[in-house]
Each structure stands twice: as C-alpha cells, then as structure tokens.
C-alpha cells in the first residue's frame, strides 16, 4: 500500500465511523438528550439545596457548573463502546486492517459532538439561572476544550469496562480521579473570568491537556479494547 492510499484509508475509516455514529445518535435521540436533561435537573437542585440567594449562588456557580458538566459527561460515556460490543461491530473494527486509533478517535469525536458540544451550548443558560456574574465566553470556551478532553480520557475507562455487565459505576470510579486536573483548571478559568481576571493561563493549560489526551488517550483506549474484547 502506498502512503497516499493508506492515508486515504485512514481518513476513510475516520469519516465512515464518524458518519455512522452520528447517524445512530440521530436515530436514538435519548442517547444525547438524557445527559442534557441530567445537567439541567442537577443544576436546578443546587438552589433547592443551598437556598435561592443569588450572592451565594454566584460564588458557587463556576464550580457547580463544571462539576455537573463532568458528571453528565461521565454518565454518557458508558454507551460509547457498549452497543458496538454487544452487536459484534467492535470485533469487526478490531480485525479490520485500518488503524484502531482512528476508529476510536472517530467514536470519541462523535461522542463529543452529541454530548460535550450541546452541554457547552446549554451552559450559559444554566449560568444565568445560577446568577453567574460574568465570564460567559470563558465558560463556553473552557467547557468546549474540557469536555473534549473528558471524552478522550473517558474513552479509556469506557474501553476498559466494555465487557463488564455492570460497568457504569466502575467506569465513573476509575475515570473521576483522572478528571481532577481538567476540573481544577476549567473551574478556575471560569472563576477568574467571573471576577474579571485574565484567564489565558488556565485556558492554555486546558488546551495542553487536550493536545496530550488527543495523542495518548486513543492509543490507551485501543490497547484496552484489544484486551477486553479478545478475552471475553
């Protein structure tokens, strides 16, 4: 195979997998609407728990929005490889000659397009409800980068637990500690922006996390898929 045809085969795998996953998401709207509804309901519970005072809510808002977005992403991750594993499509991906890296990457990108992106778009509305004083642009930008990183890192956890019957809770257990750096920098960027401070540093670090995850996470997820799918 020449370099040109092999690179075309890679983009072919990527494009075909991406198109297929987006089509599946369009046919099962629940898969991507449920995390959004979770995000909305969970955020609405905060004022009910801590009281409706806008001063208190404004202080809590950046952290709460980020934690809830993190949880919503976690909840949606369980389905990333599960249905493909159950109907055997995943095994076909494993035996196909194209690089598994691109298949995994395409699935992650599709997952981000149907969960991370809508979560980001919904977040300013929820920020208003929590009377976030400012920094709406930073909120969107940090969530845009952060949810993509979380989808990538979460794919490793989803791949490790794909063959387990009740993998959902376990997936959260193993992935949550890995989300700590993303949460710290994401929430602090929004905090800074709300107080009118320069936010370049935390956003740049979030971008660095995304670059690192983009390079390494699909490889780790591919290795995990080979281990977990082959053995069961």
């Amino acid at each position: 195979m020449t370099a040109e045809t092999s690179s075309r085969a890679m983009t072919g795998t990527f494009g075909a997998t991406l198109r297929r996953d987006l089509l599946l998401a369009a046919r099962h709207p629940g898969d991507w609407i449920n995390p959004l509804v979770f995000f909305l309901i969970a955020i609405s519970l905060i004022p009910l728990g801590v009281g409706p005072e806008s001063k208190v809510l404004a202080v809590l808002a950046p952290g709460v929005l980020w934690v809830m977005a993190l949880l919503a992403t976690l909840l949606s991750l369980d389905g990333l490889f599960r249905s493909d594993f159950e109907d055997g499509a995943l095994e076909q991906c494993l035996v196909s000659p194209s690089l598994l890296y691109f298949t995994v990457l395409a699935k992650v990108v599709a997952h981000w397009l149907v969960t991370g992106l809508p979560l980001t778009l919904l977040s300013p509305v929820l920020g208003l409800m929590l009377s976030l004083p400012g920094g709406y642009g930073t909120l969107c930008l940090s969530l845009l980068i952060g949810t993509a990183t979380m989808s990538l890192v979460g794919a490793v956890g989803a791949a490790l637990t794909v063959s387990l019957q009740r993998g959902g809770l376990l997936l959260s257990l193993i992935v949550m500690p890995l989300y700590v750096p993303i949460l710290i920098f994401g929430a602090s960027a929004v905090n800074d922006a709300a107080q009118g401070v320069e936010v370049g540093v935390p956003l740049a670090i979030l971008g660095a996390f995304l670059a690192l995850a983009l390079a390494l996470a699909p490889m780790a997820a591919s290795a995990a898929l080979r281990v977990c799918v082959d053995s069961d």
């Binding site: 490790l160 376990l170 780790a220 053995s231």
Partner: peptide, 21 residues
C-alpha cells in the same frame, strides 16, 4: 479504582491486563 477494576473481571488475564493499562 485499580482494585475495583481488577476484581470486576471474571477472566483473570483480562483483569490483569486491564488493570495494568
């Protein structure tokens, strides 16, 4: 997390490799 993942698998080889990853 590693202990939980290790104990979740029925298959020992998968448990070993998954927790190593």
């Amino acid at each position: 997390g590693i202990m939980a993942l290790q104990s979740a698998f029925q298959n020992r080889e998968a448990a070993d490799k998954a927790s190593a990853i």
